[in-house]
Design a protein around this nucleic acid. Structure first.
Lengths: 340, 340
DNA sequence: AAACCTTTCGAAAACGTTTTCGTGTTGAAA
DNA sequence: TTTCAACACGAAAACGTTTTCGAAAGGTTT
């Protein structure tokens, strides 16, 4: 068990000062070639690598990005992390991941843990509970301390910081418009409860397009699903009591569940019922039929978020109070679940 | 912008020494109640929290676990991280995630980065390239330095450390046995190239069960798929040239692809062809038909790995050279893709 | 020989903690 | 009054770096 070697140990071995060793390894011109080479050779032999913690303490920079997301077992969030990690890696940053499990308290705890020196900044997506409570003091605190924060997907307009989102409202509008253009009129919406920011926006887009086409909104076609447990039940209710042409679902799970239930009732997809879902993930690509989706490029979202954060970290301009909101374009990926 | 307050600042404000402040906050009996309360009140007012980096440097412990996995956009790995994070969180540890992208070099770089003080130990799953090259010097180095390492899923017997796996061979044996018990004989195997440890083991299990039942092994029924690009092609070839009863696939993707291709050829599942897949993920649960799988509980695997690592970290027994290999039980989840 | 410059190195501070040890003050016991 | 313990606090080291500044040694210029 050969423990890591430090500058001090090298200095002692070679009978020089710590400063000399440090300078030698950083190729300082202050040091004669003789000693420089000697030190470098010795350091290489013992595989010296500077201690990151000591560097962090000295430089007041950790080269680490904190990511706080509701959950990781969710394809979209996994792709975002992947995107973040890509550009973080390119710039010599590490990422430390914390999960809030959709809990406000866990979000706060994690944030406070990481804020005490562990990271240089945050990239996060708000938990459901946080969005519901509208309590953002933990974010505000961190921002006030001068740590940059980038929010993505589940954001809040109450927080002044950089953001990266998709235009949920527009995407919902266009997707619904696509269905209407196929001659479909009775379009149901499977969405979440309104306090989830993206659910609300997608619902708004759906409502707007109906309005613009002079289609009367039938509130009973809008199903707000709180938790996935009651998903089946509520969708069943819809399918049995209403005759509908099409479904817009705010996520893959709602869509695939609806398709399965419909097919089991003898409803043909897409002949009798067209389905479009948000979030282009694994399920849509591999289910039968494959599902037409609104792509929500998580990789790109993660990359952009990381770029914005690192940009702010490297810019020592301190307080550039000009926050940006980047919008990642979506596009409709047409597959088998919609009429052609 | 109110920066974080330090002991030194509090000491200056209150006109006491740094030590007094530190001791007061840690409720040391050395300090009089007067000053103790005064300091604590002041600290609370300014929301003092000790700096993690400074603590790490002092204690030579970071309370951070390094996770290095091939990729995160993969349901199984995401669940493992989730499991790790659960117990890490319970014990006050953070996790820092690095992705190797199946590349040996990235694995080495990430490991060296984290090994220089950033983490107390590692939990990892080897990249394909690493398993192919059989070069584990980076792992050995870290272990020699006294940092504990726990390998999961993609492991190597050449490395002496704690491990947590499923019994791939047994699971493959039992799954194939299940197919045979349904009267199926011509069972194809969709597997990976042999250097992927789990692929090899699953193949072995498949071979053993055929041997035990006196079924002749038809090498042309064993399809070794290197990259997912040629997946379709190779499976098509199999379906067209051979008549088979059943398929055992070493992952969900191979299984769902095979099912789709088979159905497009008019082959009925499960009447004409039964399919069993390794890794119980999202796809199997939501595809049509749903797929019978061998559950590989990622959460449990992650939890166990984290427990083993933290155990070693907290045990200051130093070198307990007695390494364990934990086996997570699997079970067959029977769904629609197999005959009943 | 005096003054000065260059080269080469070391001492020390700094980052923010914790902890050991020393020390001054007070009160009580001798 | 002296002695001693208890109490309350501060100085300093330590963790591992980097960097500023000072200084010794040697050589060069007047």
């Amino acid at each position: 068990m050969r423990r890591k070697v430090t500058l001090k140990q090298i200095a002692k071995e070679l009978d020089v000062s710590i400063s000399t060793v440090s300078k030698s390894l950083r190729d300082s011109p202050e040091i004669s070639e003789d000693t420089r080479l000697k030190v470098q050779a010795f350091a290489k032999l013992y595989n010296y690598k500077p201690n990151n913690i000591a560097l962090s303490l000295k430089n007041k920079k950790t080269k680490t990005i904190g990511i706080i997301i509701p959950e990781i077992v969710h394809h979209f969030f996994a792709t975002v992390i992947s995107g973040i990690e890509q550009v973080a890696n390119e710039s010599g940053y590490n990422v430390i991941v914390c999960l809030s499990d959709e809990s406000f308290d866990k979000e706060v705890i994690n944030m406070e843990m990481l804020a005490n020196g562990s990271t240089d900044g945050f990239i996060m997506s708000l938990s459901k509970e946080t969005q519901q409570k509208k309590d953002f003091h933990h974010l505000q605190e961190v921002i006030n301390q001068g740590m940059p924060v980038v929010l993505f997907d589940r954001i809040s307009n109450d927080i002044m910081c950089d953001k990266v989102i998709i235009d949920d409202q527009l995407a919902a509008y266009e997707a619904t418009n696509f269905l209407i253009s196929k001659g479909l009129k009775k379009i149901a919406l499977l969405t979440t409860v309104d306090y989830v920011s993206v659910g609300k926006l997608r619902t708004d887009g759906y409502l707007n397009v109906l309005l613009d086409h002079g289609i009367e909104v039938d509130e009973s076609l809008i199903i707000r699903i709180e938790d996935t447990e009651h998903c089946d039940e509520k969708i069943n209710e819809l399918l049995e009591n209403k005759t509908i042409d099409a479904i817009l679902a705010v996520n893959e799970l709602f869509a695939v569940t609806a398709i399965k239930l419909a097919m089991s009732k003898g409803i043909k997809i897409p002949e009798d019922l067209s389905v479009v879902a948000f979030t282009d993930g694994i399920i849509s690509k591999y289910s039968t039929p494959t599902i037409t989706t609104i792509s929500q490029n998580g990789i790109k979202m993660g990359r952009k978020a990381a770029e914005m954060l690192i940009n702010r970290l490297e810019l020592e301009d301190e307080d550039d109070e000009h926050y940006r909101t980047e919008i990642i374009e979506t596009n409709l990926i047409i597959r088998e679940s919609t009429k052609s």
